[in-house]
Structures are given as C-alpha cells and as structure tokens.
C-alpha cells in the first residue's frame, strides 16, 4: 500500500507544482509572489491536521494504554512540526514583498509561532525521556494540554493586539477558478504526502521497537 501511494504521490506533487506555477494566473495586486500561497496554505492545513491527530491519539492512548496509539501521536507531531516550520519560512518570504515586513504580531501569525513552540517542546520532552510507558503517558498529557492551550493563546493575542492599531487586515480574496483548482490540487497532494510520511514514520518506529525487543531477548 505504501508503495502504491508513493507511486501516486510523485505525479500528484508535480501536478500541484504545474498548477501553482503555470495553470494559475498571477494575482492582480500581489503578482507572482502570491504563488507561494498554494504551498503555504497547504502546509498550514497539514499542521492543523497533524496536531489534531496528535491530540486525538493522545487521548486514545491515555484511555487505552496501547502503545500503537503513541506511535500515531508522536509520528504526527514530528511531521506537524516540519510542516509548521515550512509555514513559518514561507510566510515571511511572502510577507516581505507584499506587506513590506518579514513579520507582524498579528494574532494568526503570533498564535502560529506559539503553536510551533508548543509542539517543539513536545518533541524535546520526548527526546529527553528514556523509552518507557511513562514517556508515552507524559507526552500524551502534554499533547492534550498543548492543544487545549491554542484557542486561549489565540484569544489573548487578539485582545493584546487590539490595543495597538492593526496595521494589516486580511481581506477575503475572490479566487479565480484556476486559482481555486490549483489550491485544491496542492491541498490534496500535501494530504497524500502527509499520509505517506505517517506510514513511513510509523513503520520505522514499529521496526525500531521490534528490533529493540529482539536485541533485549538475546
């Protein structure tokens, strides 16, 4: 199944690149740089998906105590952090020519940065613990608390920023049909990418576990 999906992924991502660079027309005001959006938004969507799955499987792990669910949760966290970093890199690249600044303390940007910090902390907590049931339990606890914290952070940053004048307001864009198509293709390709990375990473963790069992048994 992994092989099949991989064979599907290669042309899918190429097609997404084709749609983003050639099929979609340039944006009227932002120009060519807007094309980074197709990947920026797709990566952001993947983060949300990945962190939601992390939360879900953390809860399931605490309820069942089955190690498989920890593998799901931690793999999702690792992939989520990679894509969150991509969002944080592509965002300023787009913002510099369009907003004329790399970064603003806008609620969405700031919340995203804190989200990234929380999940990096999750990975660091894991990295600093010896392999045991305790490690899985504690990371599940942190995965749940981190997820609960995100809406509170968003609320607080929004209030914090309203004290100062809001420099940039986001306005809804009227998307050209080709742009919409490119967006959907990119979203689909990235979701497929996530599924494959999850399968690979979970497979690796399973192998790691089996090998350590075997070595322990010798």
């Amino acid at each position: 199944m992994r092989a099949m999906l991989l064979v599907l992924l290669y042309p899918a991502m190429l097609f997404a690149l084709y749609c983003a660079f050639i099929l979609a027309p340039p944006e009227r005001e932002m120009g060519e740089v807007q094309r980074i959006f197709y990947f920026h938004i797709s990566a952001a969507w993947l983060c949300m998906l990945a962190f939601f799955i992390l939360f879900l499987f953390s809860v399931v792990y605490l309820l069942t105590g089955n190690r498989t669910y920890d593998v799901w949760a931690s793999s999702s966290a690792e992939i989520g952090v990679i894509f969150a970093s991509l969002v944080l890199i592509t965002g300023p690249l787009w913002a510099k020519p369009v907003w004329n600044t790399w970064w603003t303390w806008d609620p969405r940007l700031t919340t995203f940065l804190i989200l990234w910090l929380i999940y990096v902390a999750y990975l660091l907590l894991r990295a600093n613990m010896p392999e045991s049931d305790k490690k899985y339990k504690l990371s599940a606890v942190f995965g749940i608390l981190g997820f609960i914290d995100v809406p509170i952070v968003f609320m607080s940053i929004r209030w914090w920023r309203t004290i100062h004048p809001v420099v940039i307001t986001s306005t809804g864009m009227n998307l050209d049909p080709d742009m919409k198509a490119a967006m959907f293709v990119a979203l689909a390709a990235f979701t497929l990418f996530y599924v494959i990375l999850m399968l690979l990473r979970m497979g690796q963790k399973k192998l790691d576990y089996e090998i350590s069992l075997r070595l322990g048994g010798l």
Partner: peptide, 9 residues
C-alpha cells in the same frame, strides 16, 4: 521549555 509557551496568555 514546556511551561513558557503554555503560560503566554
């Protein structure tokens, strides 16, 4: 590392 991001609000 765990505490500061969570307690930012």
């Amino acid at each position: 590392i765990m505490m500061y991001p969570i307690t930012i609000p």
